[in-house]
Computed example of a mutant assay.
Amino acid sequence: MDVAILGATGLVGQMFVRLLENHPWFKIERLVASERSKGKKYKDIAEWPSGDIGEMEVEGLGDFLKDPDVDLVFSALPSSIAGEVEEKLAEKTPVFSNASSHRYEEDVPIIVPEVNGDQLKLIEVQQEQRGWEGFIVTNPNCSTAILVLSLKVLSEFELKKVNVVTMQAISGAGFKGLSALQIFDNVIPYIGKEEWKIENESRKILGLDFEISAVTTRVPVSHGHTEAVFVELGQDTTVEELRRAFESFDPLRDLKLPSYAKPIVYKEIPQPKLHRELGKGMSVTVGKLGKINEKMFKYVILGHNLVRGAAGGSILNAELTYRKKVI
């Protein structure tokens, strides 16, 4: 299938290109960015590309929209412009979006394949209500994407309450994010709208009504979001039983998806520098699992924010949709 990547010069856009470069199902045909990148070779904007992709010429978004002749689109556009653009494209073409513009609309699924792949059935509702031939599927905020994998496991033990504190990497803020002077020797306990996103996206993805509260911080780490999680469960269980549940969780194992990796790996002390690349960035690491009282537990989870939390998650969504013959 021929694909286009919108926002191809940003951090997430470049990760899309990296992950799709030799993909067996999806072939990059068009790289799309802002007008200031129009006409430049991709290798002159992103440092790592070589070969055919490096030689590809970047298109301006306006030109692409005049003739978006591809089988599907991956969108890494800023949310400020993604909404209208993605709706226009979805009239004819499937759009897999990393932007937040459509996540909270009732007929648009936020998908984490291991957690709620069955919600792809909303595509039919969306197409019928909007008269589209294509559709929009979103993936969640990066911290949410990492968190809900573990919460899906815990939902089997009757999830009642979640408190989470995130320690998020600098790359989560994009190229225009924090300066080195702001983040050096510092922790910044504010990321705009992030706490609201975690709280609301988690409930929508899991389809559960539970209490959840988040505190988000930015820390001086390049890649990899770490989260300290405290949960209250409705069922009596043990640390050993929860650890076995985490380690055995593997719902996509038999689907043979190209981006598949074991979703949860247990390591006693998760660390970005050591564990963010597990499963080529698609595995998240759970550790420091402990019991607070009969119903309350705590643990740490870590995931690569640009892979599992962004481009890789969106590609996995497209692969699952392709495997289910929706596209």
Rank of each mutant, 00 (worst) to 15 (best):
D185G: 14
I198D: 03
I183E: 10
A180V: 07
L206Q: 02
A169K: 03
V187L: 10
I198V: 15
I191K: 00
L181Y: 08
A169I: 02
D185Q: 05
L206P: 02
E199R: 13
I170V: 15
E201D: 07
I170N: 08
E201N: 04
Q182D: 12
L178D: 05
A169V: 03
S171T: 06
S171C: 11
E199C: 14
K193C: 08
I198N: 03
W196M: 10
D209R: 07
F175T: 02
I205V: 12
I205K: 04
E199W: 06
D209K: 07
Y190P: 01
F210L: 09
G172I: 01
Y190C: 11
G192C: 09
A180L: 14
F184P: 02
G172D: 07
G174A: 14
K197P: 00
K197D: 08
K197C: 04
G192K: 12
I183K: 06
E194V: 02
N186D: 11
A180D: 13
S171E: 06
S202F: 00
W196T: 09
E201G: 04
D209M: 03
I205Y: 01
Q168I: 04
L206E: 09
A180S: 12
G174Y: 09
R203D: 10
D185A: 10
I198T: 05
N186S: 14
I170H: 05
Q168K: 08
D185L: 08
R203V: 04
I191N: 01
F210I: 08
Y190I: 10
G174Q: 10
G192P: 03
I188R: 05
A169D: 05
S171N: 12
N186A: 09
W196V: 07
S179T: 15
G207S: 11
R203Y: 04
E195Y: 03
L206H: 08
F175K: 15
K176P: 03
S179I: 09
S171A: 13
N200A: 10
V187Q: 11
I188V: 14
D185S: 13
V187F: 03
V187P: 00
L181R: 12
G172M: 05
F175G: 15
Q182F: 05
G174L: 09
E194M: 11
G207W: 08
I188G: 00
